[in-house]
C-alpha cells in the first residue's frame, strides 16, 4: 500500500471518528441542565419572550431534527453561528486558534526536547543520582495539573522576572520575541506533565532496549558505548515512545484549556469554557470538533513517523 492510499484510508477513518465525537457531544451538551435562552434573557424573563427566542434558535425542534440539520450544514463547511453572539462559529475559532496552537506546540517541543534526553540519561544511570533526580522531577510533572503549575510559575517566575509577562498573548506578527515571552510560561505549564509522562516512558523503553541481545551484539562488535546507545539503541527505544507521545497529546490539549484561563489568554480553551457556561451549543460542538480534528490529525502524523522509525511496520499492516 502506498503512502497516498494509506493517508486516504486514515482520513476516511478519521471522518468516522469525528462523526462519533460530534454525535456524542451534540447529545451530551443538550442533556446537561440549563437552557441557553434562559441564560441569555435572565432568570426573570418573560415566558413568551423565552419561547420566542427558543423558536428562533431552533431549540424547539425535536433533537434528531436539530442533529441532522446541524450535520447537513456541517457537510457544507458551515459550523453554524454562536447562539450568544450570532457570529459564525468557524470565524471565532480561527480568531482564537493562534494562541492555543502556539502554546500547545511550544509546550510539546519543550517537553520532547527535555524528556527524551533525560529519559535516556535516567536509564543509563539507573539507580544513580541522575536517575533519582529526573524521575522525581518527572513524577512532579505527572502529579501536578497544568493549571496549578501555571499558577506556581506566575508566582515564582512571572512576578520576579519583569521580561516574562504573566497575562495575555502577543501575536507572532508583533514580533517573535514578545510572542515567545508571552507563551513561555503557559507552554512550560502544559509541557511539564506531558514531558513527565514522556520521560518515564523513554526511561522504561530504553531500559528494556538496553537488555536486548542486539545491544550485546553491538558491544561485542567493539563499538563505543555511545555508539551502542545512540546508533543501536535510540531508534528502537523511540518506537513505543512515539506512539504514546501521540496518544498523550490529549494531556497537552486538555492542559491548554485550563492554562489559558490562568494566564488570561483568549484561546480555544477559554472559548470552550465560556461557551459551555452559556450553553452555546453550536460553539461547543464546533470547538470540540476542531480539537478532536487536531488530535486525530496529530495521531496520523505520529503513525507516519512510526512507520518511518520501525521498518517492521508497513502502511496499513502486512508486508
Amino acid at each position: 500500500m502506498g503512502l497516498r492510499q494509506y493517508l486516504l484510508k486514515r482520513l476516511v477513518h478519521s471522518v468516522f471518528v469525528m462523526l462519533f465525537v460530534v454525535t456524542v457531544v451534540f447529545f451530551a451538551v443538550r442533556s446537561i441542565p440549563g437552557d441557553p435562552a434562559r441564560l441569555m434573557l435572565g432568570g426573570d424573563a418573560d415566558p413568551e419572550a423565552l419561547e420566542a427566542l427558543r423558536a428562533e434558535l431552533g431549540l424547539n425542534e425535536p433533537l434528531y431534527v436539530q442533529y441532522f440539520q446541524w450535520l447537513r450544514r456541517l457537510l457544507t463547511g458551515d459550523f453554524g453561528e454562536s447562539i450568544r453572539t450570532g457570529e459564525p462559529v468557524l470565524g471565532s475559532l480561527v480568531q482564537v486558534a493562534g494562541p492555543t496552537l502556539s502554546i500547545a506546540m511550544l509546550g510539546m517541543v519543550i517537553a520532547l526536547v527535555i524528556a527524551i534526553p533525560t529519559g535516556i540519561v535516567s536509564s543509563v544511570k539507573r539507580y544513580e543520582i541522575e536517575d533519582y533526580l529526573s524521575t522525581t522531577i518527572a513524577f512532579f510533572g505527572i502529579s501536578m495539573p497544568a493549571f496549578w503549575i501555571g499558577i506556581v510559575l506566575i508566582l515564582v517566575v512571572g512576578v520576579n522576572v519583569d521580561a516574562i509577562p504573566t497575562f495575555g498573548y502577543t501575536p507572532i506578527n508583533e514580533g517573535v520575541g514578545p510572542w515567545l515571552r508571552s507563551i513561555l510560561l503557559p507552554a512550560i505549564a502544559v509541557g511539564f506533565p506531558y514531558g513527565g509522562i514522556l520521560m518515564r516512558m523513554m526511561r522504561s523503553s530504553m531500559l528494556e532496549v538496553l537488555n536486548e541481545d542486539y545491544m550485546r551484539t553491538a558491544r561485542a562488535k567493539g563499538l563505543t558505548s555511545n555508539l551502542v546507545l545512540f546508533k543501536h539503541g535510540l531508534q528502537n527505544a523511540l518506537i513505543p515512545v512515539v506512539t504514546l507521545a501521540g496518544i498523550f497529546l490529549a494531556v497537552v490539549l486538555g492542559g491548554v484549556v485550563a492554562v489559558e484561563i490562568v494566564f488570561g489568554i483568549r484561546g480555544i480553551g477559554r472559548l470552550l469554557i465560556g461557551s459551555i457556561n452559556r450553553r452555546d451549543f453550536p460553539l461547543i460542538q464546533g470547538t470540540v470538533l476542531i480539537v478532536s480534528f487536531v488530535f486525530v490529525l496529530a495521531n496520523i502524523v505520529v503513525d507516519l513517523l512510526y512507520t518511518m522509525i520501525n521498518p517492521r511496520i508497513k502502511y496499513g499492516g502486512g508486508e
Binding site: 536486548e212 542486539y214 551484539t217 561485542a220 562488535k221 567493539g222 528502537n236 518506537i239 520501525n310 521498518p311
Partner: peptide, 27 residues
C-alpha cells in the same frame, strides 16, 4: 577499555544464540 574494543569484533568476534534477537531490527 578502548584497547579492548579493538579486540572485540576485531580479534575475537562472537556469534550469539538467537539470530532473531541478536540482530538489530531497525538497521
Amino acid at each position: 577499555e578502548s584497547e579492548m574494543r579493538s579486540v572485540r569484533g576485531g580479534e575475537i568476534s562472537m556469534i550469539f544464540q538467537d539470530p532473531m534477537t541478536s540482530l538489530n531490527p531497525v538497521m
